Amino acid sequence: MSTIESNPKNHPILSISASLQPVTPSPTPPPPLIIPNASAITPTTSLPSSPALFHDDKPIEKLYKKEKQILFEFEQIVKDIRFQLSEQLKCLEQRIETQLSILAEIQEYFRRRADVELEYAKNLDNLHKQIGQKHRAQKARRETWVFHSIYKLWDMIVHDTRHHVKYHTIMSDVCGKYMYDKFNEIAEDTRRMFMKCKSVGLASHEDIEKVLNELQS
């Protein structure tokens, strides 16, 4: 590179300076690489002769989950069926208990009604006897009663009382004997029908249980 410099006397001085490039030392050669014999190399791992086959497990997992869900739903259905079968027998038992309780109440009513009817018939009979005794005791004083129209009303009441005595006596017998015995027969028939229905229900439940067990196995 050349530069021109001026001195105080205006005499140009031409100075040429050569730009010197730095000398880069040559790199030292690396040491020689010593390669051992191929027989001395022992591989730590052996590569497979053929690439490993990888299978996708997602379809199998989905199928397993689906089967598990189906089994779970089936178990729930079986439990529901067994619960319904058990509830059927309970409902049948509750039904017979309610019916027998009602029949017992009806029997009790007719038994007490028979007592009331009999007591009422006895009271009416006593009343009728007292009226008759009084009329016979005062027969001489009451000879003119037959000429009065109101006597017919009195006579009708006395005869009606006598009829009511017979009616309530019969009603007492009907309530105390016929109706009470009749409802005893109804209660026995109801129990017999219940036992028959229960046996049929248990037999059908056993058949259903066999089918459910076969489906579960």
Results as ranks from 00 to 15, higher is better:
residue 2 S to C: 08
residue 3 T to G: 11
residue 7 N to T: 14
residue 9 K to V: 09
residue 9 K to H: 15
residue 10 N to W: 05
residue 11 H to Y: 10
residue 13 I to F: 04
residue 13 I to K: 11
residue 14 L to W: 03
residue 15 S to L: 13
residue 15 S to K: 06
residue 16 I to P: 00
residue 16 I to S: 03
residue 17 S to H: 11
residue 18 A to R: 12
residue 19 S to M: 09
residue 21 Q to L: 15
residue 23 V to L: 10
residue 23 V to C: 10
residue 24 T to Q: 13
residue 24 T to D: 12
residue 25 P to H: 06
residue 26 S to L: 11
residue 26 S to T: 07
residue 26 S to C: 03
residue 27 P to G: 00
residue 28 T to F: 10
residue 29 P to G: 03
residue 30 P to C: 05
residue 32 P to F: 11
residue 32 P to M: 09
residue 35 I to L: 14
residue 35 I to V: 11
residue 37 N to C: 14
residue 38 A to F: 14
residue 40 A to W: 10
residue 40 A to N: 14
residue 42 T to F: 06
residue 43 P to T: 03
residue 45 T to V: 08
residue 45 T to K: 08
residue 46 S to R: 15
residue 49 S to N: 10
residue 49 S to M: 10
residue 53 L to Y: 08
residue 53 L to R: 13
residue 53 L to T: 10
residue 56 D to S: 02
residue 56 D to R: 01
residue 57 D to T: 15
residue 59 P to A: 01
residue 62 K to V: 08
residue 63 L to W: 12
residue 64 Y to N: 08
residue 66 K to W: 09
residue 67 E to M: 12
residue 69 Q to A: 09
residue 69 Q to D: 04
residue 72 F to W: 09
residue 73 E to Q: 13
residue 73 E to F: 11
residue 75 E to F: 09
residue 75 E to V: 01
residue 78 V to K: 04
residue 79 K to M: 07
residue 79 K to G: 05
residue 80 D to E: 13
residue 82 R to C: 08
residue 82 R to A: 02
residue 84 Q to V: 07
residue 85 L to H: 06
residue 88 Q to D: 08
residue 89 L to Y: 01
residue 92 L to I: 06
residue 93 E to D: 12
residue 95 R to W: 12
residue 96 I to S: 01
residue 97 E to G: 06
residue 99 Q to C: 04
residue 99 Q to F: 08
residue 99 Q to T: 13
residue 100 L to T: 02
residue 101 S to R: 07
residue 102 I to D: 07
residue 106 I to L: 06
residue 108 E to H: 08
residue 110 F to C: 02
residue 113 R to I: 03
residue 114 A to Q: 02
residue 115 D to A: 06
residue 117 E to L: 04
residue 117 E to G: 00
residue 118 L to Q: 10
residue 119 E to L: 12
residue 122 K to H: 09
residue 123 N to V: 05
residue 123 N to P: 00
residue 123 N to C: 07
residue 124 L to V: 07
residue 132 G to D: 12
residue 132 G to R: 12
residue 134 K to S: 02
residue 135 H to K: 15
residue 137 A to R: 14
residue 140 A to R: 00
residue 141 R to D: 09
residue 141 R to H: 11
residue 142 R to T: 13
residue 144 T to M: 14
residue 146 V to Q: 13
residue 149 S to H: 14
residue 149 S to V: 14
residue 152 K to C: 05
residue 152 K to H: 14
residue 154 W to I: 14
residue 156 M to F: 14
residue 156 M to I: 02
residue 157 I to C: 05
residue 158 V to M: 07
residue 163 H to K: 15
residue 164 H to E: 13
residue 168 H to P: 00
residue 169 T to V: 05
residue 169 T to K: 12
residue 169 T to L: 10
residue 170 I to M: 14
residue 173 D to H: 11
residue 177 K to W: 02
residue 177 K to P: 00
residue 178 Y to F: 15
residue 181 D to S: 07
residue 182 K to I: 02
residue 182 K to V: 08
residue 183 F to N: 04
residue 187 A to I: 05
residue 187 A to M: 03
residue 188 E to Y: 01
residue 192 R to T: 14
residue 194 F to P: 01
residue 194 F to D: 00
residue 195 M to P: 05
residue 196 K to R: 12
residue 196 K to A: 15
residue 196 K to P: 04
residue 199 S to M: 09
residue 199 S to Y: 07
residue 200 V to P: 02
residue 202 L to Q: 13
residue 203 A to K: 13
residue 203 A to V: 05
residue 204 S to G: 00
residue 205 H to T: 15
residue 209 E to D: 07
residue 212 L to A: 01
residue 213 N to I: 06
residue 214 E to W: 09
residue 216 Q to I: 13
residue 217 S to V: 10
